[in-house]
Amino acid sequence: MTFEPTRPAIAVRDLRKSFGDQVVLDGIDLTVPSGTVFALLGPNGAGKTTIVRILSTLIGADGGDLRVAGHDVVREPDSVRAAIGVTGQFAAVDNLLTGEENLLLMAALHHLGKRAGRRRAAELLDRFGLTEAARKPVATYSGGMRRRLDLAMGLVGDPRVVFLDEPTTGLDPRSRRGLWDVVRGLVADGVTVLLTTQYLEEADQLADRIALLDHGRLVAEGTAAELKRQVPGGHVRLSFSDPRDLAAAARALGGGSADDDELTLRVPGDGGVRSLRALLDRLDDAGVEVGDLTVHTPDLDDVFLALTGGTDRADRAKESAR
């Protein structure tokens, strides 16, 4: 990995947007270096989609200095449009056309020429596993296929910056993994990706940096590891059938919070294989019989709990995430 001292692919300063009296974005600052994946993480209504809609020139901002691929979003929208590809939360495909026709339509609008357009369409159909369904109307596609076609359509013009607005919401785990592979492939080609998601795991898997968005403000920004360190939610829960085992385990592990009624012991830990093995070795050495073991890893709710400082806000976040 080398760091190029080039200008960032996306640079946002003090982005503001209100719909009527409702402030949706309250002064957002973002910098996404070229060739990296940046994830905007937050519950529904946090303002993620609004950021994508503004940066992809779909709607205007109320204020802020916004540059995408080196172009001012307000003054040179067409230069920005020429450099980006967008995949929305709801597939932006033409339902009456076939998958291939959708891609050829994009190729024609990018003025690729007939032969180059056909080649590009065939290539993308193949890459997204849609070759077999190429001649079928999109209306007959499954959710995962539509999302893949949607992403493929955004890539026809070879964009340098790709916006993915909740690309895997509503997809089954297999389709989700397939999409993750595609994103990794894009980054390998030097494309910059701005991704929004509700899933910490997704951000964790894909993003170089993650920003946490809550009620139109960035509440935290950093790498996945940096963010997780701020979350106290990770722990291992051990349950026992005998109070003596509980006491012995607490002694052996030198801490944790014991619950004498439920015969459980909560030990802080990230649930990684290495730390789990160490934990079990220590229990073995002390000759403690463990009944059951569950690992609790930090999730989005924990992150919110920790970073917005209060159950009230986290509950609200949970509520709106539904």
């Binding site: 992809s56 020139t57 779909l58 067409d78 230069s79 449009r81 020429a82 980006i84 967008v86 929305g88 709801f90 597939a91 932006a92 495909v93 033409d94 339902n95 959708n102 609008l109 990018h110 359509m153 955004g154 013009g157």
Partner: peptide, 13 residues
């Protein structure tokens, strides 16, 4: 009402 119209709006056409 189709999403593809939103896509057209984000393209340099």
């Amino acid at each position: 009402t189709e999403g593809v119209i939103a896509r057209f709006r984000t393209m340099a056409i």
